[in-house]
């Protein structure tokens, strides 16, 4: 019998054009919920969710953009030490796919070099039921970009929850078991905890 290791915390960031469904994907993953036409969630842009894959437990620290992508005003802090990223586009919006290429490039420049990136074409529900005229970005285009840039690739629907958990499980299984915490983050010298209250609420597990 062995004690489980404390779950490894993985900083995961979301990138993509406004309104492609980033916040909705997080809401689906964390709360298994979806809200049509909802206002941007106020006060909830940092969520945690545990995810168990085999005998490994990962605690995702999910950073949403808080709308700062709207006028291209994301701060360097956002990318810093991110170990995983979802680059999201809307499969009914070709411009959002162009934007996705831009975000992948930005991540290669700004984030740690071993970051795991998943390319996510969202709003799959809109093209289901052979309602194909709404689809503007083909599966092949998505796959091709993913192959070129060495990304995971999924098409999802935050609305129906199609493939959403698979994204996070897919990323989780690519996280090396004993990955040293990212390159730039020195472990020497104690970091201090300014807010000395115990921070986290009780655990939960998923996956």
């Amino acid at each position: 019998m062995s004690f489980p290791n404390p779950p490894k915390a993985i900083k995961l960031v979301l990138l993509g054009e406004a309104a492609v469904g980033k916040s909705s994907l997080v809401l689906r993953f964390v709360s298994n919920d979806f809200q049509e036409n909802k206002e941007p969630t106020i006060g909830a842009a940092f969520l945690t969710q545990k995810c168990t894959i085999g005998d490994k437990t990962i605690k995702y620290e999910i950073w949403d953009t808080a709308g700062q992508e709207r006028f291209a005003s994301l701060a360097p802090m956002y990318y810093r030490n991110a170990q995983a990223a979802l680059v999201v586009y809307d499969i009914t919006k070709p411009a959002s796919f162009l934007k996705a290429r831009h975000w992948v490039k930005e991540l290669h420049e700004q984030a740690s070099k071993d970051i795991i990136i998943a390319l996510v074409g969202n709003k799959y529900d809109l093209v289901e039921d052979s309602n194909d005229e709404l689809r503007k970005v083909s599966v092949e285009e998505g796959k091709k970009l993913a192959e070129e840039e060495d990304l995971l690739f999924f098409e999802t629907s935050a609305k129906t929850s199609f493939n959403v958990n698979e994204v996070f499980i897919g990323i989780g299984s690519k996280i090396p078991d004993n990955s040293p915490v990212t390159e730039t983050r020195p472990e020497n010298g104690a970091r201090i905890d300014l807010s000395s209250q115990p921070a986290q609420k009780s655990n939960s597990s998923c996956c």
């Binding site: 964390v30 958990n165 939960s204």
Partner: peptide, 14 residues
Amino acid sequence: KRPNAEEEEGLNGL
């Protein structure tokens, strides 16, 4: 102290 709206951890398993 601001309310911990952000702290919601997902409670439902997948």
